[in-house]
Write a protein that binds this DNA or RNA. Structure first.
Lengths: 164, 164
DNA sequence: AAAACTATGGCAGTAGTGTTGACATATTTT
DNA sequence: AAAATATGTCAACACTACTGCCATAGTTTT
């Protein structure tokens, strides 16, 4: 019966398939974040610090409000993380040019170095998975993950990601 | 130059592409976990409780040690979560048949109901993403995410996922 | 110029999830 | 009988997140 169904319509989504998709995401995320965690630990930082470093690295001069919107955490949660990064000399703030209330965020050389160190590990992992899977699979990966992003913000996020 | 490179070798992985892959995973995970979080909150539970419910649901009679290996957390972390689920009547334990030291875990009817409620939300999201992306993309998604799982455990995990 | 709004920052308190290490109990294996 | 295993529990700690409240500086509106 299952076979009949999937023959008739390959996009008939059995619950098993959906469960697999969900578990794959869980396992991949679980293992993907382990490398960074080990590096961060040496600096006394956690994942939240990495996320900040990552998005400041990709968006130099980003404001606090913009970063909050990306990370979807509260001001207070980000504040702690940013303070630690600034205190440690990994991030610097600069008064906004257009609006002087804003604090634009930049990585210092030390911050760039740490970000690079982590990015290298993660990128190596992705690069290997990409090579194993092939170009076509990569396109599929992107399509499906894009579809999991909230529809409302999807266009803006995809634009931001592909901008570079 | 970038164009020349990618023309010459479509799998030449530019840093941009790798960054995109990483950010897609971040955004997808961020949004994918939001639905469940809202439901869980009503019960006073968090993500860790859901993960336990999920894997007990898919593996009725799973032992504590097996669940620990999947979640990769410490005994103490799981213990707190399991105690809450048992106390709330969502999970029940049963002494192992083969080895009476083991506690096999099962969802109660109430537990099944909660698990179902969350699974429905997540599965709907995946189903939509799958439909939008198409069957080929789904295969690619699976391939790439599989490649992100630690190589050592990959075979066992893939077997477990596809077992059903 | 005054009032209202905005961007940021800080404080206090709380919760969820994770960690380590030590110890206890029941059961199985050697 | 001794050693090993599966589980549970206690205490203590860290990271990340939350809420609510208040403060300051700067911008926009009236």
């Amino acid at each position: 019966m299952t076979d009949l169904k999937s023959l008739a319509n390959p996009l008939f989504l059995r619950e098993d398939e959906l469960r697999q998709a969900i578990e794959l995401l869980f396992y991949a995320y679980r293992d993907f974040t382990r490398g960074p965690d080990e590096i961060l630990e040496r600096y006394g930082f956690g994942r939240a610090h990495h996320r900040a470093l990552h998005f400041i690295s990709g968006n130099p001069g980003i404001t606090v409000a913009e970063l909050l919107a990306i990370l979807r955490i509260t001001k207070q949660s980000l504040s702690r993380v940013l303070s630690a990064l600034i205190e440690g000399g990994f991030v610097r703030q600069q008064q906004g040019t257009r609006d002087r209330r804003q604090r634009q965020l930049f990585l210092t050389d030390q911050g760039k170095h740490l970000e690079r160190q982590i990015a290298t590990v993660q990128q190596a992992k992705v690069a290997e998975a990409y090579r194993e899977a092939g170009a076509e699979a990569v396109a599929g990966y992107r399509k499906v993950l894009s579809g999991l992003i909230d529809a409302q913000e999807r266009p803006a996020i995809l634009r931001a990601i592909q901008r570079r």
